[in-house]
Design a protein around this nucleic acid. Structure first.
Lengths: 178, 178
DNA sequence: AGAATGATTAGAAAATTGTCAAATTACTCT
DNA sequence: AGAGTAATTTGACAATTTTCTAATCATTCT
């Protein structure tokens, strides 16, 4: 991934594009390119070395000159290949949770409480993240927190107890598991 | 051409690549992206606006949110399309001269004086660029300048006079036409 | 109309990067 | 070995760009 960004940065410079276009036409060497572009050899060398270490150009010596040439295969890929991040490794379970959550939450609000127990637990666990373990909460407090996600805080609150995520004693609630 | 460079510059930034990868997966909005990337909404907005004005992303409002989405066609082109400069408009005569010169000069040295008059004139005119109009040169001086290009400065010097590029009076030479 | 919320802009600080002049290195040719 | 030539490195400077904070703007909801 890192190399893709490096390649893009490399290509995103006017001088380097000019150099590449010269090399697209024919192999060349530092001084000649410098002359054609009205820049100093030092500058051209700086760019060529940068591109060489990224594998964009190759160089070989001929007499006094370092002949630079293009590594043309690089330019065949579609742009899409360069911007796409390699898939992060994420286990199937995580992916499932993510899908469930993105299905039932829209813009951070719970659209509907899932009927399937497994999905419902995932959704409730997400809401439970708002509570800290070891802390005691009053009922009003619990309601307010849940209300951020859904109108019907009563149902949610009851469900959280039912599936063992929270516990209650009289008017006091607390988180059991994250 | 200018737009190609702009597009490359746009893509050559880590944050913007991150944003594009999020949008590749699903449309999203400023705050959410900011949260996912641990940056401020101002920063994300800066990047999105930049990409929008380049046509890389589109946006539309939905409730409180500005939903940004990708303009996916852009990414189909091969990289080659982005680096290649559009052909400069160059008249046929110029192109002919260029071809003749690149054939007879190698690494800045004249390999051989063309026998064809037309080609010879082109080559001589190229060498004549080293002289300034209106200036007087001694013979040694003329020889030294010509010698940069070819061993046999005498022949070249004689030819320059013969085809009317330079004039001579006694030991003094000067350029007639460029 | 007013409160709330997300998006955008303005201004400033920090980081990155392209360029050059001058010095050094690497190589070629006698 | 030494002279000559092109390439490269170094250090400094200038220009550009990313990011943030704070303030403002535009919508939506009550």
């Amino acid at each position: 991934m890192k190399e893709k960004l490096e390649l893009l940065k490399l290509l995103a410079d006017e001088t380097r594009l000019d150099i590449l276009n010269i090399l697209l036409h024919e192999d060349s060497y530092v001084e000649k390119i410098a002359c054609e572009l009205s820049l100093t050899p030092a500058t051209i060398c700086y760019h060529l070395k940068k591109m060489e270490s990224a594998g964009v150009v190759n160089c070989s010596r001929s007499q006094f000159y370092m002949i630079y040439s293009l590594n043309r295969e690089i330019f065949d890929k579609p742009l899409y290949e360069l911007i796409k991040k390699d898939e992060p490794v994420i286990d199937a379970n995580e992916k499932y949770k993510k899908d469930v959550l993105s299905h039932f939450f829209k813009y951070g609000k719970l659209v509907q409480l899932p009927t399937q127990r497994k999905k419902r637990e995932i959704v409730l666990a997400e809401i439970a993240k708002q509570f800290k373990i070891g802390q005691k909460y009053g009922e009003t407090e619990v309601n307010e927190i849940i209300h951020q996600f859904h109108e019907d805080h009563c149902t949610i609150r009851r469900e959280m107890i039912a599936c063992g995520i929270m516990a209650r004693e009289k008017e006091i609630y607390w988180l059991i598991k994250t």
